[in-house]
């Protein structure tokens, strides 16, 4: 994707599920895994809009072993629903 919203998040997992979650996460749309810190997994989500990003993030809660999803950063300058004419 060469445009759209970028967000980064920390996915907290139950320690015994960390590896399993990490391997499942890339299956989700726009999600990339960038690292694992103990039981926390660093990911980015790329999507068209903030709302879409939010939906994807919410969906991560459904993965077995995920105990929390924390948004760290959200860049929405390319979100056409917020900035129709760009920034």
């Amino acid at each position: 994707m060469d445009h759209g919203v970028i967000s980064s998040l920390v996915v907290e997992t139950a320690p015994e599920y960390t590896q399993a979650v990490a391997s499942e996460l890339p299956q989700k749309p726009g999600v990339e895994v960038h690292g694992i810190e103990g039981y926390k997994i660093v990911i980015t989500i790329e999507s068209e809009t903030v709302d879409e990003s939010h939906d994807i993030a919410n969906g991560l809660m459904d993965i077995t072993g995920v105990i929390g999803v924390n948004l760290v950063y959200l860049n929405f300058e390319d979100d056409k629903t917020i900035y129709p004419d760009g920034v």
Partner: peptide
């Protein structure tokens, strides 16, 4: 974004 999330983690 990655740096920040890593830091937070």
């Amino acid at each position: 974004a990655i740096a920040m999330a890593t830091a937070a983690a």
